[in-house]
Design a protein around this nucleic acid. Structure first.
Lengths: 356, 356
DNA sequence: CGCGGTGAGTAACGCGCGTTACTAGTGCGT
DNA sequence: ACGCACTAGTAACGCGCGTTACTCACCGCG
């Protein structure tokens, strides 16, 4: 076959890019040798001398490997993707941070794609699919799905092409591994703390009773009471809208319902926002926290819990840890371990501040 | 030249990957034709018929372009990088969201690298450099640097290899374009609102007087007063630590200093956290908001401002908009426009709630 | 009939790199 | 002298794609 003429590319290189070839020439060796040195091959058989020369050339030229080319050649990208609603809650951020940090430790990159769902009713499937698709185009080796509050979700079909882990949510079809907070243990810890402080009549300001968070936390509360030989009085469990106003109203109801001697001495608010409202209701009535009424929250929404006066004792949702664990699980999966659709529970630590 | 033998790669393809070649074979055309169709070339000269056949093949095989390979071949990645401290403030998140959304619109990917600086004293230069380096290895076409609070920063040297834009911060050496909030206009709006509500004696709870936010906001306050023919009484400006406790203490001082008739009727808190503390000080004294004392904040820290009772009127920091503008600026830069080191000011809108 | 022009498509190269198969040189045992 | 093992390194391929230069068939025109 005849040697074909080389077409002359229009002087493409707009941006100076030092390649391995440049390094090789500078060091007077072959490109292969450079590649061997840079990837630290074991059975390398490159003399210390040339190795040094190559490293010098790398320094001198300011060589920087091209991650894309490497990915193409080696057929592995070292990229994970995470799709999440970055918007609404500040929670997603903590998940991302946890995942990001862990990925960084593992020398991997985390590509973040927003799925921007409009509201809590149902995910914006179109955007989620598009996000997943984009991520797959980048040839991510694994996918993370993160929700801002603990719930069941439906994952796009195409996500099943690579290992996938759910964070703070679970697959409604039960086919994917997931990582969620241990709500039950959290509820137990919260109420346990109140019991330990001597409280016997404990009011509970509940969330929408159907969501996993409410179910788990309430169950935990029940368990803690049972351990102390007490029962959860249904009358003391009042529903509330998951906002400060909702908490205010619920607290008003429960506080005004009883004469002082029967009034609960502690309030377990199933989230911090409601606790914030409860604070107002309590203070309005001339009562003190925690002197007259102790308050414990859930979620550890920093900006609320740490700045309320007195600072709110609450149970933290372990977002960062879940993010990190998600990446670890993904790493195990991509390393070849079989995908098992189990659910990992992560502990919710109690944060003692001043409201109990 | 003799045809060399083909080395047989160890059955690499661990993951089924449909390539353009597969599509071409399925459609009975050359790979080039597929490429032409997929990239919508103008001077294509592909008949409608084959074009259709190719598109069908794409559908049938579920072909998904390989972004990395495309980047390698075309010498452009369509990636931007953003380095930011994702940790501390929830602000960074909003910047990222704004940038992310804008990038998404422009069909670009935003790579996020954490720089995790320890505290406000000085950036953790090591990590920042590493993050920048990693980003450059991915061959990002432009870089964004985002700070969580408005300040001067030093950007890693290597960042200068690609177009770079600073968000919510500025280059201490003044060499890079930056995007920052218009603090002065914000201060003017805030105090203007109080004046409009009839207040004449306005207390100001200040931040660390050296940071750009304090300088700008105070200057704005002064201007608004001047427009109304008033002067800023230095006695009414009390310094505070930038926390709820700091705000509480500052508010106590200013409220207790005067007999009722001389007491300021409104408080301009230079951030929302301090406003939160001021609320407590006011309520403790049996005063009402906004009846006895109007309060206006700054920052619009959602979780505080929207959940305080009454809800806090405040001036918003336009993080999302700054993020979006950052990407737009970057797009202009990478499109070949010259890099000019100007500073773009973004408006801080007033959010009316119930505390004025 | 020859010739330029167009439409429809293809072969071949290179992007930067990982990887495998190969070569050249040297020392050592027999 | 030869074969063998080992060290030090290199040529060549392919990853999936964008891109350029080229071929081939067909048409109209002089």
């Amino acid at each position: 076959m005849a040697k074909t003429t080389t077409p002359n590319h229009a002087g493409a290189a707009r941006q100076r890019g030092v390649t391995m070839k440049d390094v090789a020439e500078h060091a007077g060796v072959s490109r292969t040798a450079v590649s061997f040195v840079l990837s630290n091959r074991e059975n390398a058989s490159i003399s210390e001398e040339t190795r040094a020369r190559i490293n010098e050339a790398v320094q001198a030229l300011g060589y920087r490997p091209n991650a894309g080319a490497r990915a193409l050649a080696s057929q592995r990208s070292d990229w994970y993707g995470i799709v999440t609603e970055i918007v609404t809650a500040p929670f997603a951020v903590d998940i991302i941070k946890g995942a990001q940090d862990q990925a960084w430790l593992d020398r991997r990159f985390l590509l973040i794609a927003p799925s921007d769902q409009a509201d809590a009713v149902g995910p914006n499937q179109g955007l989620e699919d598009a996000a997943t698709e984009k991520l797959l185009e980048q040839r991510v080796e694994g996918l993370l799905y993160a929700a801002t509050y603990h719930r069941g979700v439906h994952v796009p079909e195409s996500a099943k092409e690579v290992p996938t882990v759910l964070i703070n949510c679970f697959d409604a079809d039960g086919k994917l591994p997931s990582i969620v907070p241990d709500e039950r243990a959290g509820g137990r810890v919260a109420v346990g703390r109140l019991l330990q402080a001597g409280h016997r009549r404990i009011g509970v300001i509940n969330l929408d009773p159907d969501i996993p968070a409410a179910v788990g936390r309430l169950e935990g509360a029940r368990e803690a009471l049972a351990e102390a030989g007490l029962e959860l009085d249904p009358e003391l469990v009042v529903p509330g809208h998951a906002t400060a106003d909702g908490g205010y109203e619920a607290a008003c109801r429960i506080l005004d319902r009883y004469p002082q001697k029967d009034r609960p001495t502690a309030l377990f608010c199933l989230n911090d926002r409601m606790a914030m409202g409860a604070y107002d209701a309590i203070k309005e009535r001339g009562l003190t926290i925690p002197g007259d009424i102790a308050v414990i929250g859930f979620d550890n929404q920093e900006l609320i819990a740490a700045y309320l006066r007195p600072k709110l004792t609450t149970v933290a949702l372990p977002f960062e840890k879940m993010g990190a664990l998600g990446v670890q699980t993904l790493a195990a999966l991509t390393a070849g371990q079989p995908i098992i659709a189990d659910q990992q529970l992560v502990d919710c630590p109690l944060l003692e501040r001043s409201s109990v």
